[in-house]
Amino acid sequence: MGKRKLLMGITLGAVVGGATALFDREAREYAKDKLTAAKSNSSYFMSHPSEAIHNLRDAFDQFNQTFADGAANAINALEQVETTLDKVANKKEVKEIQ
């Protein structure tokens, strides 16, 4: 029940906020331009579905490559931290032995 109330509150807040924003002429024009562009793009891709799939695949491949690069960078950073910690731990051990 709590989840439903939360989602209803979020939805209602979004609707009220969007409606309130449309009182501004500039916001209405922006919304109209974006909806017109979305309509135009969706009409184009409905007429050319293979291009839509190709663009989607290219976007996914780019996201996948970016994610893989980020993961590789994160692993490299963790390895550097591990190496640094090992050096610090080894220095402490050498000092304790002496």
Rank of each mutant, 00 (worst) to 15 (best):
L85W: 01
G18C: 02
E29L: 13
K91G: 01
Q65T: 11
M46I: 03
I10A: 05
D33C: 00
Q80K: 12
E82C: 01
A52E: 07
F67D: 04
F63T: 09
A38K: 06
K91M: 12
T83N: 07
S47C: 00
S40W: 08
L56Y: 10
N76F: 13
V15G: 03
Y30N: 11
M8H: 14
T20F: 15
N64G: 00
Y44G: 01
E96S: 08
G9S: 04
D69P: 00
R4C: 06
G2S: 15
A89G: 00
I10S: 01
L12K: 11
K95Q: 12
E79D: 12
I10C: 01
A27P: 01
A19Q: 08
Y30M: 10
Y44A: 04
M46H: 09
D86F: 09
D24C: 07
D24P: 01
P49N: 06
A14M: 15
D61P: 02
D86K: 12
M1L: 14
A38D: 02
R57N: 13
L6T: 05
L56A: 14
T36K: 15
E96G: 02
E96N: 05
H48D: 06
K95R: 11
A68L: 10
Q62K: 15
R57G: 03
N41K: 12
P49F: 06
M1R: 10
R57P: 01
G2D: 15
M1E: 11
A77H: 09
T84P: 00
I75W: 08
D86W: 06
I53V: 13
D86I: 11
T83V: 02
E26G: 04
Q80Y: 02
I53W: 07
G18L: 04
R25N: 02
G9Y: 01
H54E: 14
M46E: 12
K95A: 14
E96V: 09
L22V: 05
D33Y: 05
V15K: 01
K32S: 15
F45W: 05
A89M: 04
N41D: 14
D58E: 14
F67C: 04
G70R: 04
S50H: 08
A59H: 05
N90M: 08
A21N: 02
K39S: 10
K91E: 15
L6K: 08
V88D: 06
S47T: 05
S43G: 00
R4E: 15
T20M: 15
A77S: 12
K32N: 12
K95S: 08
D86P: 00
G70H: 04
F63Y: 06
A31K: 08
E82H: 07
S43C: 00
D24A: 11
L35F: 09
D69G: 07
D24S: 12
G2N: 14
R4K: 13
T11S: 09
L6N: 04
A19L: 15
A77Y: 11
L6W: 07
V94E: 14
M8Y: 13
Q98I: 06
L35I: 10
K39E: 13
S40T: 12
L6C: 03
I53T: 09
R4W: 07
A72C: 03
G13D: 04
L35Y: 05
T11Y: 10
V94S: 09
A27F: 05
Q98T: 03
R28L: 02
D33W: 05
L6Q: 08
A89H: 03
L7C: 03
R57F: 09
